[in-house]
Design a protein around this nucleic acid. Structure first.
Length: 259
DNA sequence: ATGTCTCATAATATGAGA
């Protein structure tokens, strides 16, 4: 089972690029962030015609997440538990019914800039809720993963210029510590389980020729429960997508699971 | 450090968010 996470930065702006990518790369499951569409306006039928079941959790203008799957989906839920007053669409879950069922959680973690400030407080509070959901997932002792745009640069090797990010919400120590507390509950970060060293990025800013200079950061991650990590065959970043026509600023990150 | 992009509103430009 091949699962890709991809922050598409707007489904309306990306419908062509997203269609081409799905047809060429053929993920079994595509977990999308920043659809920037309400559910009613999402081009669901277009993607169903490509062979995907389509589940969305959108909102007007910003954010929004989705799961596309060629395999049946069960028990779809929307919204990260823990704050009924939170109206931002950043979390969706579904069980993908392959040979081995896998609980797939798609997330778009708050950016948090400027830090410090109310947006950063929201990021940290959201991560506390994520930790609670992560603990519950682990307690089930089943194959499950949480993937998406974490807006977290885990280590210096995950940025071309780490010194430029020290005060940024994506890299400040408080952010990284919160991320590590979740990871250290017992998750496997799929990319670093299989690839070491620097120069591996999943996001390049549109500004200042960042792609041309490979001035990137790695902020799109897969966290696997132990039962899911046992199924991990490989994990890779499809960086080439960033060089296409009218690209997102993120690229797909993949896992292949024996599921 | 910023040389950009997307979306919403509606001042067919501008602000917000990233």
């Amino acid at each position: 089972m091949k699962i890709a996470t991809f922050n598409i930065n707007g489904v309306k702006a990306r419908i062509g690029a997203l269609t081409d990518w799905l047809n060429e790369s053929q993920p079994d499951v595509a977990v999308l962030q920043e659809i920037k569409s309400v559910d009613e306006a999402f081009p669901r039928e277009h993607f169903e015609d490509l062979g995907y079941r389509v589940e969305t959790h959108g909102q007007k203008g910003f954010n929004g997440v989705a799961i596309f799957s060629k395999l049946p989906l069960e028990d779809v839920t929307r919204g990260l538990p823990g704050d009924e007053s939170d109206e931002q669409a950043r979390w969706i879950e579904a069980t993908v019914m392959g040979d081995t069922p896998v609980r797939v959680c798609g997330l778009y973690l708050p950016n948090g800039n400027p830090a410090p400030g109310p947006k950063y407080d929201y990021k940290l509070a959201w991560m506390e809720r994520l930790k609670a959901r992560a603990e519950a997932l682990l307690a089930e002792e089943q194959p499950a993963l949480m993937c998406g745009d974490y807006n977290i640069i885990p280590q210096a090797e995950d940025a071309k210029r780490p010194e430029a990010w020290t005060e940024d919400a994506l890299y400040r120590m408080e952010s990284r510590e919160s991320y590590r507390r979740i990871l250290n509950l017992g998750f496997t970060e799929a990319f670093r389980a299989t690839t070491h060293g620097d120069g591996h990025y999943s996001f390049w800013d549109y500004q200042a020729g960042a792609w041309d200079r490979n001035d990137g950061i790695r902020i799109d991650h897969f966290l696997l429960t132990p039962q899911c990590a046992d199924l991990l065959n490989s994990c890779w970043i499809e960086a080439e997508v960033r060089g296409r026509e009218r690209p997102s600023d993120h690229v797909p990150v993949w896992v292949d699971l024996a599921a």
